[in-house]
Structures are given as C-alpha cells and as structure tokens.
Design a protein around this nucleic acid. Structure first.
Lengths: 224, 224
DNA sequence: AGGCCCCTGCCTCTCCAGTGGCAGCCAGGA
DNA sequence: TCCTGGCTGCCACTGGAGAGGCAGGGGCCT
C-alpha cells in the first residue's frame, strides 16, 4: 500500500483529502505543521509527500529542504500562491510538482499517481543474493542455507537501507537518520550493537565480516 | 548535455522555446507533428520530451502512448485545454507533468529541471579514473590494480575535494577550510602529512607524484 | 504473566589524528 | 662557494576516539 504524508493545516482540506485518498487505497498520515511533518517523515517513511507551503510554524521551503537530502520520495507542493518565482523556487529546491489552490481533486490525484508511478521503478531488484544469505526486500525475508532467519524490526530496517545501497558506503549519520530518525544522528553506539547482531545472524564468520563491512570513522557498506 | 525533444506545431513557440533551452545548455530537437516526433524519439533518444497535445496529424494522447512502453524518459505535456479530464487522462497514460497555455517560461523550465532531475540518478557515474587508480565518488571507494584501497576519513575528504576540482588548483586555505573547517586555515602542516599518506597509498612512485601535485606556496592539484 | 526487543553500560583493543623533529631541495645573497 | 631561510617530505610518537563483545534491565506487546 502506498503511504502518503499529507502536510496541511486547514482541517477541512485535510478531511477532504484524507477521505479521497483512503477510498483510493492510500494510507494517509497527516501533519498540521512543519515540525510534525519532518518527524512523521522520519518515523513512517512515506512513499510520497503532499505539502502545503503555507504552514503555521515553518516556511514550506524549509520543510522541503528538511526532507530532501535524506528522503528521495516525490514531493507534491500545494500553494495558494500563483507567482512564478514561488513555483520555480519550490521546484528547484526539490519539489516534484506544484499545484495551485484551488485545485481539482481529480487533477491532484492524477498528479499523485504520476509522481508515484515515476518513483516506483527504483524499487526493483527485490532479491539480493550473497554467497551465504539471500535478502528478499519485497517479502521482507532473509534466507540462509535455505532456512529463514528471524530479524527484529530494527535489524531489518538497517539491513534494508544497506542492501538498497549495495556496494555504496552509507554514512553513520544517514543510516541513523533513516532508521531511527533525525534526532538520533549521534547515537553511533546503536549501530555497533545492531551491526554486531546482524553479523551474528548472517555472516559465516562474524569476527571477519565479508558482507556487512565497517568503514572506520565513516560508516557501513553492504557487499554481496 | 541534456537532449530535449520539443513537439510543437506553432513556429513562434518553437522558436521561443528553442532559444531559451539552447541558452541554458540543452540540446533541442524539434518536431512539428506526431509522426516526426515518434521518428525523432526513436532515432535521437532524448532525455526529456516537451509535448504539445494539439498537433495537426495525431491526437496528443496517441503520441504519449506511442512513446511510452519503449521510452521511459519524462514527458511534459503542454496544452491549451484546462479541463480536468484532459489533465487526468494525459497524466494517467504516462505524462509526467501537464502545463496549461499560456505558461510562464520560467515555470516551464523549472518543471523541466525537476523532471530531468528525478530521472537523472540512474545515469550518474561519479567515477574518475587515472592510469594507476580509480575513484568512485558515489560509493566512496578507491580501487588500485583492482584492489580496494582503504582510506581514512580525513584522507578521503581531501581526495574528494581534489578530485571534484580535477585539473584545477585548490588553494591551501580552501582545502583546509573544506576538510577541517574555517578555524584551521593556517595549519598547512596538516596538508603535508596527509598528502604524503595519500601519495604513499595511491601514487606509483610517491617520491615523484603524477596525480597529487604540489604547487609550492599555493596549494595542490589533482591530475588524472 | 511472559517473552522479546531495544537500549545502556562497561571493558578491551585497534588505529587514526595531530605533534614535533629532522632532512632534502631550491633560490637568493654575502 | 658557502650559508641561510622557506617550503616540503618523511618518520616516530602519543592521546584519544571509535569499534566490538558481553551482559543485563526496562518496557512494550501479546
């Protein structure tokens, strides 16, 4: 199911959108202000963000910037402002679409579908194999020697981020941000504990990891 | 360079868009009708398509359908029709954005940038090669003779700054500022130590560096 | 009530960052 | 010709940050 993060402060509009999205099979998380939005984005990992630029606590531009850099999902901006500079600014700092109020519900939904469709192909390659274990990203399963390995939610989240960036280094901060949220960027000890657990469950020789590799001082890397 | 396929039958609009796109560094292919558009798309493989729905020979919807299925680049639709059903239809059969005429040139260009940006990551190849080693900026890896070279965080930061400015001189102050921060602009001895370490790890003959070159009294330069 | 997961605290160990000392090279001046 | 000063490269050393291992408690969900 597609998760939508709806950032909007007008209750009626939230209500209307929520109903429309729900009936079309979307899961909706609503945030009435920027702070809540950033928090929810970190904790719930939406597939797409619908963002009103006129929020009570922060400038919409700040919200976009707060999301971009670590979240790559599409952002569709809603705004009452028709001015060209506003649109250009929002699009250039990372928004994917800009819809001016008042808007037709049908059009917004179509733009949402288009944005989600374009973002989708990125999640291909749902199965990644190594010499000792197999990760099925879609099914959320890990097999080792034909047997299923049980991972806790946190363990799975970490493994998922690393596998999606297979071969690339993932910095400690970005890993912490993706799994625990922006407030935990400095808790590097969490990583040590959970990487050790993952290695115990997955590596043939946990003392000499071949797939879940530490880059001292920088981060971690998954190698197949 | 980004190649734009511009499908539009009004000569003035083609002219205006062509000039605007050219000056911004895009390569422009123009097609006045649907048949030409499909033909050009097949032969020239554009990176993005700007498509007017009102064409003399075919319905714009057919053009979108003719492109989609084998071409995955973004399609931005231009149209004089504001009706909601039109937009929904175009977006649902594969368009990525829908801009109604008359439109602001700035806005169209911003939407174009957003569409290209979203499609881009697939073809990024942040890899720089020299005769003796290879730097992969995205994966944060350095290969030498097929083997991976381990760099410490500081070593990597320095190498990254130099490689991103390949061929250009990087002043001692700016290098210190980028790696250690503004407070360290005078600690030129740091550079001597770490450049020596990098040369030992990467240069074929560290005593006679070919890629990490000192410009006495000025700074350092990376040459491939 | 029980189980399990998340997080913490402690210990050990590795190794990187930064320091200081010294030698080589070059250019300019005595 | 020799000396000197500035810049660079090389090496050894040390403090400390960061990494892993282990054990245990608190809290949430079932």
């Amino acid at each position: 199911m597609t998760r939508v993060l709806l950032v909007e402060d007008e209750p009626q509009l939230v209500r209307a959108l929520r109903i429309n999205l729900r009936t079309r099979g979307y899961e909706v998380e609503a945030a009435p202000d920027g702070r809540t939005a950033l928090d929810l984005a970190a904790r719930r990992h939406p597939d797409v963000v619908v963002l009103d630029l006129g929020l009570p606590d922060m400038d919409g531009v700040e919200v976009i910037e707060g999301l971009r850099g670590w979240l790559s999902v599409p952002i569709i901006v809603l705004s009452a402002r028709h001015a060209s500079e506003e649109k250009v600014r929002a699009l250039d700092i990372g928004a994917d679409d800009y819809v001016t109020k008042p808007f037709g519900m049908d059009e917004l939904l179509a733009r949402l579908r288009a944005a989600v469709r374009r973002a989708a192909p990125a999640e291909q390659a749902a199965v990644v194999e190594t010499a000792t274990f197999t990760v099925d990203l879609a099914a959320k399963k890990v097999l080792r020697d034909g047997r299923e390995v049980r991972l806790t939610p946190t363990e799975w989240n970490i493994l998922e981020v690393l596998v999606r960036n297979a071969g690339r280094l993932v910095g400690q901060r970005s890993l912490l941000r993706e799994v625990w949220g922006p407030a935990y960027e400095k808790e590097t000890n969490y990583l040590r504990v959970y990487l050790a657990q993952l290695r115990r469950k997955l590596e043939p020789d946990p003392a000499r990891p071949r797939h879940l590799i530490t880059e001292p001082g920088m981060g971690y890397r998954f190698e197949r």
